[in-house]
């Protein structure tokens, strides 16, 4: 399985290692090389310096036709744009964008992009921890419809939605 991770932060690095250990082909991108220090020295995947929102960079890194695309930078909008690029131009099967603004997270799930919202996650988790009732939101907001550019590979988009709903 080819996994593309945009943003080599704490989460990105941990995931890269985990995917790699599980025997996947991992490509990780970040705008700064310093970010790759977070990766273990044993990491043998492909670490590429470059902007994840630039189609050319992604193609050069080999992100095309990846099975999983995770946009995990600190910028919500960068994540969204990278994820949309992946869906629209790179023919990626399963795309997830981290969007910390709850409004945008919900809006893009509505638009057909799977999103994960740290704000929502922490809110729900902490409220649950404190014994309060939570909004009962799924951890990953599944796309509510096909992405505007996703018509031509609907077949891939639909299985992508199913697991995240579960």
């Amino acid at each position: 399985m080819k996994v593309v991770i945009v943003g080599c932060g704490r989460v990105g690095a941990v995931l890269a290692e985990a995917f790699e250990k599980a025997g996947n082909d991992v490509i990780i991108l970040d705008r700064s090389t310093g970010a790759f220090d977070k990766l273990p020295s044993t990491f043998r995947g492909n670490a590429v310096r470059g902007d994840g929102t630039d189609e050319d960079v992604l193609r050069r890194a080999g992100a095309q036709d990846a099975d999983v695309f995770l946009a995990l930078t600190e910028g919500d909008n960068r994540n969204v744009m990278a994820a949309q690029l992946a869906t629209e131009a790179l023919n990626v099967g399963r795309v997830l964008a981290k969007v910390n603004d709850p409004v945008r997270a919900a809006a893009y799930a509505d638009l057909g992009l799977a999103t994960i919202c740290r704000t929502n996650l922490m809110e729900d988790t902490i409220l649950g921890f404190a014994g309060l009732s939570t909004a009962q939101r799924p951890p990953i907001l599944a796309p509510q419809r096909t992405h505007p550019g996703g018509e031509h590979h609907r077949a891939e988009a639909e299985p992508a939605a199913a697991p995240s709903e579960a």
Partner: peptide
């Protein structure tokens, strides 16, 4: 920033039902 412009327009279009969106594209 292109990504910001894109997101703003998409939010406007789809979340707020703005009839017309204009974005500046650098790339």
């Amino acid at each position: 920033d292109d990504e910001d412009n894109l997101v703003i327009c998409q939010m406007a279009k789809h979340h707020f039902d703005v009839p017309r969106t204009i974005a500046r594209v650098n790339n």
